[in-house]
Each structure stands twice: as C-alpha cells, then as structure tokens.
C-alpha cells in the first residue's frame, strides 16, 4: 500500500476521538479500512491525519436494547453474519451480511463504516432505509440521531458533520408479525451489487400490511427508498398481484445508470424482480404467507 504519508492517531474512547476530531486539521476516521485503505492506496484519499477508532472497545457491540437493534461502530460484517440474534429475528441483516464483499473484507469492514462511506452500491444503507433505521452520532455538541433517509446526500457524501463520529447504527426491533429480506444481484462473489432490494413488511392482526419498507441499492445516486411502492403495499393483503405492482413501482422509482456490468433498463427490470423476491421472503418470514413455486 503506497499511500501518501499521514499522521496516525489511536484514541481509546469516544470522547477522546471526538476531541481529536475537533482539534486536528481535516481528520479522516479509519474503521475497518476496507474502503478507506483502497482509497489511500489509489491516492484518491490523501488525508494528513487519520483517527483510527479500532482501539475504542466500547464501540464493539451488536445487541437489542431499548426497543432497538444496535450495531456499534466496530461491529464487523462478520459479527452480523455470525450472530444468532440476527439469524432469528432480522432476515434482511442475515441475508445481507454474507453478500457483502468476501470473507476477508467482512472480517474487518464494519456496518457503520459502510454506511459512512455512503457508496450507493453499499448494501447496508438499503437495509437501514427499509427498517426506518438511524445512525447515532457523537460530536462536540453531544449526541444526535439521524434518520437513514436524511443521512445520505450524494455518492460518498452525507449529512455527518466534520467533527462528528458515528457511534452506532440502529433499527427498531421487529413486531411479532414482521419479516424482512434482502436480495442482491451481483456478477461474482466479492462484487458490489448491480442492483439490490431490501424489504420489510409488518402485518396487522387482520393480515393486512401495516407498514412496509423498501430500500434500493446501486440504482440511484444514494441508497434510495421506494416510497410509492411502500404506499401501495400498506393497508393491503399480500398477493402476487400486489407484489407485482410494488415491484413495478420500485423499478419506476429507481434511477440506475448503464455501466460495463449492465444497462440501465436491465437494472430497472431487476429492481422489479428483486423487490418481488424480497417482498415474498419478507411476507413468508412474517408468517403471513407460505410461498409455493408452481412447478
């Protein structure tokens, strides 16, 4: 790794980190390094100062607390992948973790770092959106929570302040009749998504969809919400026709670009397919339907 020279700081607490961020000139936070180190290596990032948060033990957690699933800033993709709690209750997280990059990268890379990176091809942003999640940040003015919808601005650009550190990503714990899923289309293992869709469905006692969340990956300038599709679902009973309609609305809401891996028209169509698949899984996991392949 032939990066430009930089200064390396290793705070051991969140407050120490925040005061470093405040006092140093233009600092860059280093978490798992799986996005930052490649950027240093290509000299796309040339920071003078790096604040390495890997020594802050208090940020290493993944737990349910106060009605939230909370992922500390040092929860790695692999921690999500290995968690029984995730397996039991968070279908979309369980689907996503093994689809992020490859095992080596998952051992180091963090969920929060991925969200902070704000790559529109990153998977976790869509999951947060589908779950109405938030990022919790700590700065000179104390703590604040930013809803996922308000966090992403542009590719690699967020509403995080320069002197702020994300300490946690969190989503509300699911209700009884709630299920979620993530479907991702990629060309090979370790590759980013050509398109991805996270879906979450909560059902009322009557079997109607009480709340729906759909987040989309790699098909807009940021991870994006498919609001019209969500609205079309809410208040309805699940059916192939309903999911078909939602899939179409999600595809319409998407805004992909053509690249060497696929044309925009194809990606739009795949949003439709992936949304329907994710909705089917989410409904099934909520215990609302059993799916049966007709052949």
């Amino acid at each position: 790794m032939k990066s430009a020279p930089f200064e390396h700081h290793e705070p051991e607490s969140v407050s120490e980190a925040v005061s470093l961020l405040e006092s140093l000139d233009d600092p860059t936070i280093l978490a798992g390094g799986q996005s930052l180190v490649p950027m240093l290596r290509f000299r796309l990032a040339n920071p003078d100062v790096v604040v390495d948060i890997n020594g802050i033990d208090s940020l290493e957690y993944l737990r349910e607390e106060d009605g939230y699933l909370k992922l500390g800033a040092l929860a790695r993709h692999a921690d999500v992948e290995d968690s029984d709690l995730i397996d039991e209750r968070y279908g979309s997280f369980a689907d996503t973790a093994p689809l992020v990059a490859d095992p080596q990268i998952r051992n180091r890379g963090t969920v929060v770092g991925s969200v902070a990176q704000a790559d529109p091809k990153g998977d976790w942003g869509s999951v947060l959106i589908a779950h109405d999640g938030e990022v919790v940040v700590e700065g000179p003015d104390g703590e604040r929570a930013i809803p996922a919808d308000e966090f992403f601005l542009l590719p690699y650009d967020t509403t995080l302040g320069e002197e702020e550190l994300i300490t946690e990503a969190r989503v509300p714990t699911p209700a009884d009749r709630e299920g979620s899923a993530y479907h991702k289309l990629k060309r090979k293992t370790g590759d980013y998504a050509m398109a991805g869709v996270a879906a979450r469905l909560r059902f009322d006692d009557d079997g109607r969809i009480e709340s729906a969340g759909i987040g989309m990956t790699a098909v807009d300038i940021t991870n994006a919400r498919a609001s019209e599709a969500e609205e079309a679902l809410e208040g309805e009973r699940p059916s192939p026709e309903l999911f078909e309609e939602a899939g179409e609305l999600a595809a319409e809401a998407s805004n992909p670009e053509s690249d060497e891996h696929g044309d925009a028209s194809y990606k739009e169509r795949m949003v439709d397919v992936l949304a329907q698949r994710a909705l089917g899984d989410a409904a099934e996991r909520a215990g609302a339907v059993k799916r049966r392949v007709t052949q």
Binding site: G207, S239, K290, R291, R292
Partner: peptide, 21 residues
C-alpha cells in the same frame, strides 16, 4: 418471466391472508 409468473401464495389458516387467484 417475472417472479409473479411462477409463484403462488398459500396463506396461513388463521386468516392472515386470502388465497390468491
């Protein structure tokens, strides 16, 4: 084809949903 062309939904007995066409 699209996913809907090939999948039928079955619904739980407790009336969580209705059988689709």
């Amino acid at each position: 084809i699209g996913p809907a062309d090939n999948v039928a939904f079955e619904f739980d007995d407790d009336g969580a949903g209705e059988p689709a066409d």
